[in-house]
Design a protein around this nucleic acid. Sequence first.
DNA 1: GTCATTTCGTGCGTATACATACGCTTTTCG
DNA 2: CGAAAAGCGTATGTATACGCACGAAATGAC
Lengths: 150, 150
Amino acid sequence: MSDKSELPIALRAAYLAMHRQSDAQFAKYGVTADQFVLLATLSRGDALTQRELARRMPSDPSTVRAMLVLLEKQGLVERDVHPSDSRARTVALTAEGKRKFRQLWNAGESIRTKMHEAIQPAIVADVVKLLTQLATVLNGENVFNHAQEA
Amino acid sequence: MSDKSELPIALRAAYLAMHRQSDAQFAKYGVTADQFVLLATLSRGDALTQRELARRMPSDPSTVRAMLVLLEKQGLVERDVHPSDSRARTVALTAEGKRKFRQLWNAGESIRTKMHEAIQPAIVADVVKLLTQLATVLNGENVFNHAQEA
DNA sequence: GTCATTTCGTGCGTATACATACGCTTTTCG
DNA sequence: CGAAAAGCGTATGTATACGCACGAAATGAC
């Protein structure tokens, strides 16, 4: 209880449960839970570079590349050369990608609803803030001061 | 905000941050974050079948098998035939596995501490309960009644 | 007792997650 | 201007995560 092991365990169990359910739900539409995350990220900021897309997911650039290759084959995303930076490539949803994402969004509603059933509505915002702080602290930047790091 | 997308996003971000930090921390000892989870689970219930081990992690049996093969090569776990069920195999930590786990536990202390810095001590137990409920609901069993499922 | 069902471990295939190294541009700075 | 540094995408390798199918053993139904 005070061995501090419960929080990591519970976080892992919750995430894996969500991921599994999402995969199962989205499988009917031929995409994975993580592909959904990518499509959702794109739908909220079109024409991102692969790097920026990876940063926002958040995920690894080389992972994102592999996902983009698959999604491109499915015709859901499109990659073009960056207008000003010839190193970079911009990524955007295709028309079909946007359509598919709307479908997926609806298909995922039951999962989002389930998750909100587990938490009292009044504290959902607090939980979100808390999880975000958890991520922030773990990623190294102290919440209270952005100062020195060993 | 009320589109219910923030909670899944925050949960994902928090878990991935924890996983990355754990991997980085444990890499010095030649094991991964997930291998640590497996070793920890074994240390709390020795001589489990592979199935039971997978159930407790929680993880997929075929994933666990792959991990066991690697850990066996490292001499951290040992598999024997089950005394009464010749289909099953029991898994247990070796002496070196126990030693290694103690090392890993200490190495992980900074991460557990970091996580607890992000959450007020008074509500840690609530957060754990909440995450556990999240997992329970997602895994299908309603929290309030264990009744009919479509 | 026999046979259908369930359960256990395994093997295979696909998709993520990440580290690392590499080639190529862009930017920076002397 | 020109060399060094940093940034972007790519390719490869390892470890998870999971579904699915298989053979073998245990369990149930009758």
